[in-house]
Amino acid sequence: MKIRIKFAKYGAMKFIGHLDMMRFFQKAIRRAGIDVKYSAGFSPHQIMSFASPLGVGLESTGEYMDIEVNSMTTTEALKEALNGAMVEGVEILSVGVLPDTVKNAMASVAAASYRLQSKNGAFAIPNPEETVCAFYAQETIPYTKETKKSVIQLDLKQGIYDVRMETGASLFMTVNASSSGNIKPSMVFEKLCEFAGAEIPAAAYQITRLETYTDLAGEGAPHRFVPLSACCTEESQAECY
């Protein structure tokens, strides 16, 4: 049986990287006594898929991971058992059963929404509302991404689905988070600051991933983003199949 787990990550835990979070969950699942399914082979490992790696330093209220179990009582009991094995800074928000036909968490991801919040209450860009509007109204937003191997030219505009100021000096955005076109919120912020002619103040902002979405629209149709948890048959009604 496939299970989709939604969790939040915050506080000190934001400094735990993606691979270590996987290790953390593998151990937590064992502590929680969950009848998790293991792969075959000489060194079996738990069957586990994370939706989208969260960068170190980011908090989240919309992280997802899929596991497979041989048996369980109820999703509520599983959630409780897992929460009993957590530490401060990781909280299981919901647990749902996935229909077998649904793609795993990683393959399902299409977009994610983020909030970028100033830590000292001030937003470093003058007239933020208008500036953000003007920024998003650009035809293209070229971005040069440098990796160890190559330099890639991207157009961020294609992958920004929404960007706007919210009350309380914070910036909200929904961007592409699929494995092929993932956009980091810091990239958008960097371009925004550049557009506004403002300095990028290092670490003065806390970025939170709010939700991770899958896209229900067919090829070529306008996006229909729903949270990954919407694919579960229990917990919330499924729309995904």
Binding site: G17, K27, G89, A203
Partner: peptide, 26 residues
């Protein structure tokens, strides 16, 4: 929630910040 001794700024610039935050299971 516990307040960390090191600022986010410092923790983001050092290698393996998990060495310094405590909070481990048990």
């Amino acid at each position: 929630m516990r307040k960390l001794a090191l600022s986010d700024d410092i923790l983001m610039q050092v290698e393996k910040p998990a060495r310094y935050i405590g909070n481990e299971v048990n």
